[in-house]
Computed example of a mutant assay.
Amino acid sequence: MIEITVKGIKKFIGHNEIALTSTHHKLSLPVIKRMYKKMVNGIKFDDIKIFENLVIDGHHRYISSLLAEIEIGKIKSLKSSATKEYKWNDIEFDENDWDTDSKIQYLNERDAEYNQIDIETINDIVSE
């Protein structure tokens, strides 16, 4: 398991070809950290939504899956006229957590149900 930091993610992006393009200019580092921990511990996630080469929904899942070297499913979606493209090198990784404690618990419960495991296992993974 690697340490997920802004510097580490930027280094990864600089040294790897990222197949899909972001449509968000900012992502939450703590959200990426939680997803990464879950992925490297075998937790599966919903598919991300893409339009051609654009990530429409699932940016945190996508970058976490790349860092974890885990293939994530992709389903086709639509884009709106307001959709903008951002180079991964230009993405800002916010060190603030965008999720509240109650949302984190809700997502952990959902992940436990989706993966058919107990919630304690998920809670242990993210608290490591």
Rank of each mutant, 00 (worst) to 15 (best):
S81F: 09
M39R: 02
I18S: 04
S102Y: 11
S80R: 09
V40M: 11
P30C: 04
N96S: 14
K44Q: 13
R61N: 08
S80V: 02
K103I: 10
I117R: 14
K7Y: 11
F45A: 08
T121C: 05
I4T: 05
K10N: 13
N96L: 10
E52H: 11
D46W: 01
E128M: 13
V55Q: 06
F93H: 03
K38T: 09
V126A: 08
E92G: 02
Y114L: 08
Y86T: 00
D90C: 01
V40K: 15
Y36P: 01
K74I: 00
L27Q: 11
I4Y: 06
I43M: 07
I91Q: 11
Y62M: 00
M35T: 14
V31A: 11
W88P: 12
T100D: 14
K11S: 11
K87L: 08
S127D: 15
S80L: 05
V40T: 13
M35I: 14
K7E: 15
W98V: 06
S28K: 04
I13M: 00
M35V: 12
I63R: 07
H24T: 10
L107E: 12
F45P: 00
N53R: 12
I104V: 15
S127F: 09
E109W: 04
A68K: 01
R110I: 12
H59C: 03
M39C: 05
Y114S: 03
D90A: 10
K87Q: 07
V31K: 15
S28W: 04
I125C: 06
N123A: 07
D111V: 00
F93Y: 14
L107M: 12
K103V: 12
K26V: 09
Y106Q: 13
S127P: 05
T23V: 08
D99L: 15
D118N: 15
E69T: 04
N108T: 10
K44E: 15
T23R: 02
S28I: 02
G73E: 01
N89H: 11
E85K: 14
G73N: 08
E69M: 05
S65P: 02
N115K: 10
I63Q: 02
I56P: 00
D124N: 15
